[in-house]
Each structure stands twice: as C-alpha cells, then as structure tokens.
C-alpha cells in the first residue's frame, strides 16, 4: 500500500512544554488511522506539523512520498477541531471559494458543491448566509468543504465532538465510503470508543510520545481476552470467585476483569450453579482499557 504520510522521529516544543516527542507514524492509502490520546497529549500539534502549519524542531515529515510542500496540501482535506465558516458568506459561495483555494475550477467546484448539498439534504439552503443556519447544517457544510476537492488524505481532528447523532452517522458512513474508494482517513480524538470500530491502525499517544502503535487487530491480539461481561438473575455470590481480579456492577450487568491466565470456564460453571445466566461474553479489551493499562496512572485524561 502507498504510504501517504510518514512522520519520522518528529519532536516539537513550545516554551517549556514538550508537545510532541520523538514520534513516528505511517498512514497508508485506503485505511483509517486513529491518532488517539487524552486531551493535551499532542494530537493537534502532530497534525499541524503534518500539514505545515508549524514545523517540527527535529525529525522529518513526508507527505505523498515527498518532503512537505505547500502544493501537496491540495490533496489534503483538513477539518480542524476549532472549525468555522465565514458568517456573512452564502453557503455555495463559501464552498466554491474553499474549493478554489484547493485547486478546483469554479465550474467544477459549483457542480460538486451542488451534488454534495443534495446528497446531505441541504440543497435548499445553498443560497443562504452561513449565519442563518443551524449548527447541524453548518457542520454538514464543514464536512463538504473538507471533502469537496476529493482529497486523498482526510484529516479530522475530534470530528465527532459537538456532532448530533444523525450527523455523526452520516459522517461515519461517508468516510467509510471514501475509504472504500482508496482514500486515507486520519481520526484524531480522545473518545477512543467512538473510532474503535472504524480504525484499521492506531497510534496511542500520551504526553507527546507514542505509547502504542500498529494495526488494530495486531494490537488487540497482544492483549488477553480477560474482559468479561455477565448478565444474570439471582445471587451475585460468584463474584467472589478466585479468577476475578476486579469488577464493576452496572444496572443490567456486571463487567469483570479476570486475573492473568484465569479459567473463565470454571467461573461460568460456578455462576450458573447459583444464578440464571442470560449473557456471558468474554470480550477483548477496549482501546480505552488498553490505553489505561499501558500508561497506568500516568495519563492526564
């Protein structure tokens, strides 16, 4: 697979704070990549170096196989966490303007903008000013402006923050479609649960440094299936079983973390003896759990 972005041992410091330290990562075409970590871990700083808003203090950034150049930015679609639109501009003019900056002709930009607006069901507001629109509609326009020039690399910083559920699903489906067409998508978020099922590979960062990176399947396989979800009726006496390291009780279920190499089948037999088991699922750990386990108590989240 073609590598679209590569960071090699990149570092960046501001004032006394180290934002990114010795970070390396690769994003391939046709994949979804998760840049994950708590707030302040250095995700946005990393992205800004990728697209040349800031320059790394040391290390190298390669975009589309070449050292960073401004021309390469026409092949990138970037949706920043802090995103806005010109309030006084009409939707269609705004979309065409942003597409022109990314190298599209006015006629082609207009055609595509109309197509996208129809697809996302906002064709009726194309001639309205942005300030007259609801927040949900503005979010749709921001997606369109990021994707209008059909970028090979799509970078989304906290894309789901502040998104209503309808738009979140819409965005997710759109991005999956684009991935199928061979585009690469980079998600940067602290909400690991939101992108877990989407990402092919990830880089977990904490305090500016990578703590875990690689393919999602490969990473998950490194961790034992020691996460147990049990739904039951009756006695909770089985929670004293020696295989259990810790557990959390929720309204309709209990989530259990098993001791290393514990025998889950023995626990099931014990539980079934005293209660009615409606669900007994041995799940792989979530990214969040992997993250917490990896960084221990050191996370700033």
């Amino acid at each position: 697979m073609e590598v679209l972005v590569e960071l090699q041992q990149v570092s960046k410091s501001y004032e006394e704070k180290v934002a990114v330290h010795d970070l390396s990562l690769k994003i391939e075409a046709g994949s979804m990549f998760g840049l994950l970590g708590p707030n302040g871990a250095g995700k946005t700083s990393t992205i800004r170096m990728m697209i040349g808003i800031t320059r790394p203090d040391s290390g190298a950034v390669t975009l589309f196989g070449k050292p960073f150049s401004a021309a390469a930015l026409q092949r990138v679609g970037y949706l920043p966490e802090e995103r806005g639109l010109y309030r006084k501009m009409k939707v269609i003019e705004q979309l065409v303007f942003l597409a022109e900056l990314r190298g599209l002709g006015a006629a082609e930009a207009t055609r595509r903008a109309k197509e996208w607006c129809e697809k996302l069901q906002i064709a009726d507001v194309m001639n309205k000013k942005t300030e007259e629109l609801s927040k949900g509609m503005q979010q749709k326009i921001q997606f369109i402006s990021t994707l209008l020039h059909d970028p090979e690399l799509i970078i989304m910083d906290e894309p789901f923050s502040g998104l209503d559920p309808v738009n979140a699903v819409l965005l997710q489906d759109t991005l999956l479609e684009l991935k199928k067409q061979g585009n690469a998508v980079l998600f940067s978020t602290h909400r690991m649960d939101q992108v877990e099922k989407l990402c092919d590979s990830i880089c977990l960062i904490n305090k500016g440094a990578a703590v875990l990176s690689g393919g999602m399947r490969e990473i998950k396989s490194r961790y034992e299936r020691n996460h147990l979800v049990v739904q039951y009726e009756g006695s909770d006496g089985f929670l004293g079983h020696p295989a259990i390291e810790s557990y959390k009780t929720y309204a309709d279920r209990v989530e259990i973390r098993l001791k290393p190499h514990a025998n889950a089948q023995d626990l099931l037999r014990t539980a079934a003896a005293t209660s009615t088991i409606t669900k007994f699922e041995l799940a792989e750990p979530s990214l969040e759990e992997i993250f917490i386990e990896t960084v221990g108590g050191r996370a700033d989240a």
Binding site: I51, I53, A70, V76, L79, P80, R83, G84, Y86, L101
Partner: peptide, 17 residues
C-alpha cells in the same frame, strides 16, 4: 479578528500560505 474568532483561519492555513 473575525477569521480568528470564527476559527476559519485554521482551515484556510491548511491550504493557503
């Protein structure tokens, strides 16, 4: 200032110098 407060300028700077 409007470009800064409306946060459009980070979008702009990702394509225009």
């Amino acid at each position: 200032v409007e470009e800064k407060t409306s946060r459009i300028f980070e979008v702009l700077l990702s394509t225009v110098s």
